[in-house]
Design a protein around this nucleic acid. Sequence first.
DNA 1: ACAAGATGATTAATCGTTTAATCAACGCCT
DNA 2: AGGCGTTGATTAAACGATTAATCATCTTGT
Lengths: 364, 364
Amino acid sequence: MVSTRTGPNLSRIAASLGVSVATVSNALSGKGRVSVELVERIRATAAALGYVPSQAGRALRTGRSGVLGLVLPDISNPLFPQIAQAIEYSASVAGYGVLIADSRGDVGMQTEAINRLVERGVDGMVIVPRRGTRIADAGCPVAVIDTPSTPGNTVSADHWQGGREIAKHLRDLGHRKILLIGASSTSNVQNDRIGGFKSALDATIKTEVLWIENLEERNGPGCLLGLVDKVQQGFTAFAAVSDLHALRALTELQRAGIAVPDSATVTGFDDLIWSTVVTPALTTMRMDMATIADIAVAALVDAIENGGPIEKGGPGEASADESLPDSRLVTAEKSRVPMQLVVRQSSGPPWVGKNEPLSGELLT
Amino acid sequence: MVSTRTGPNLSRIAASLGVSVATVSNALSGKGRVSVELVERIRATAAALGYVPSQAGRALRTGRSGVLGLVLPDISNPLFPQIAQAIEYSASVAGYGVLIADSRGDVGMQTEAINRLVERGVDGMVIVPRRGTRIADAGCPVAVIDTPSTPGNTVSADHWQGGREIAKHLRDLGHRKILLIGASSTSNVQNDRIGGFKSALDATIKTEVLWIENLEERNGPGCLLGLVDKVQQGFTAFAAVSDLHALRALTELQRAGIAVPDSATVTGFDDLIWSTVVTPALTTMRMDMATIADIAVAALVDAIENGGPIEKGGPGEASADESLPDSRLVTAEKSRVPMQLVVRQSSGPPWVGKNEPLSGELLT
DNA sequence: ACAAGATGATTAATCGTTTAATCAACGCCT
DNA sequence: AGGCGTTGATTAAACGATTAATCATCTTGT
């Protein structure tokens, strides 16, 4: 029960100057009419006393908490640090705090996580869904960061263009038989990247898609991807849809004695933390998370403060549920942010040098 | 100005039942004296109306926000997902929300980040410092997750024991010349891991420490670690102090045609996301973040709600600053949580099979 | 039967901030 | 000089929940 009555409040400042609290409030917020001289004095004593406004008091009065929620259904996603950092930065610049919620990969717990945020009184939330999960009605403005092709998406990287860029990079290097590596065929993001990839190539280049999830269903998690066979079949480039899978491909090839990039090219996506430290460093596509976060937060703040552009919840059960006000997906003018190609050492022309594509001596 | 007057409040419930707000409050919190029958009716209508208590109102009255802050000076740390997930879970079980703050690696911005949290009215905060940065006075209970040897540490993994375990694992496999790989000699965590490692070995086993930071100062970031030379010098095992460096070592060795674990063993620390997907999967030490988070949050909540055990801010400038109440580092009974050895495929006995330690054909 | 205690509910104050409404001076114009 | 707009400040009423203090009943003991 030790209430930490820490800083002074408005009335303390008011008392110490012999003015009213309203005047102090007005002076500090610059809203009412206060003489410049008095504003100066109030500012000074506020600073001297180390005044910090009570968010609770302000929130109660204004009905806004100044806090945004951040929901990542799959928080173990290695992209999380990038996203959290970018959102937190954009939010703090806009004067908002960021409350995190985790649904531990469980789709059912996502609603629960969202409810926790709502109960904490967030003014809006940023949701990065995975696998096209439905966003439950939140009763507050919601910004969705997924992929442009998903209905309801607010802003995201241009995954399609990203796919195109990396495809062109591989094509220009001279690759003619490319294996695309993805995790799940139900992911919108991955499908867009793959779609863009294929759209950049004509019939002279052959592609094939390997879905890791399907493979692991048969061979168990962590199984080999069978890339050595693919090399023997003539594939010279392996374009993973995420750096995590690129890493898997890279090490599997290396373990089999296939040199990268000399005998096989590997590329990834997202420029994750390890892409620069592995040997060879990964060629990858980087998303501009700072810009994406800025846009998402700006759209959210606009909706919160000015009742900006919102779109009624998606089709389906959205308007059927009447107990809650419908979720309000915010929209942004610029909804797709270009990705940037980062060329490092893991990609190169096929069949460089003299080596056979397969040394064979170290097959597991 | 569209105030989202969403849910009903206490008075709405009170009015709809013809009782007073105090009674409703008492009934829902179970504190005052209300007849069981009335409690039942109040609970029912509260649920029917979809009542959610206003955190702002509650916070203003009780002086507690029900929110904890989470500070990671280096949010790009790949451990972040694990930590954030664990802390958020423990906090939500304890009825608290988690507000994140990032100082983007900049030590100076750490104070700023902490201040942002304080201004938002967090009841306490969890800080995971890096490189022994000083914790600025926060004016609220603070739990520090670092390493047991750091003064002021609240709880953490037992890095020393972790080092011992992995050393014993390598010793038992038969390795006699081991290279330890760390990033920075100023990191308490890394020093503890290395210290524990060495403490488990007698003079028959030779170890050497490679600090990546020193190497990169000379050769530039992302440079090779020169592990091929080390193999030639007779090192058979490479024990990295983090999975990130283990990954770096693994790929560097593989790129040079040195098979892992056949010709060289590589181990890591922390069981990061990629440790299972690389080939060979990484042998590593896993921290029990769930337990660590539970302990940290419990200590924090205890200090917040019962004024639990706290320790005055560290020596030095802590008590010199008089404008803020001193920071209160909370303590926990169990401050070191054992790490767990996870044996996978990247470690094995030295010189297994017939292969020469170095094939040499693929040296970069 | 009456004082004393237990029970169940209400009153009213409070947390700190914002803001609409009010008020007192003062200068200015006709 | 009296009415009027402007300036600079104050008053007072919220916002929603918590809680100490109070009050009305009803039970119980002597």
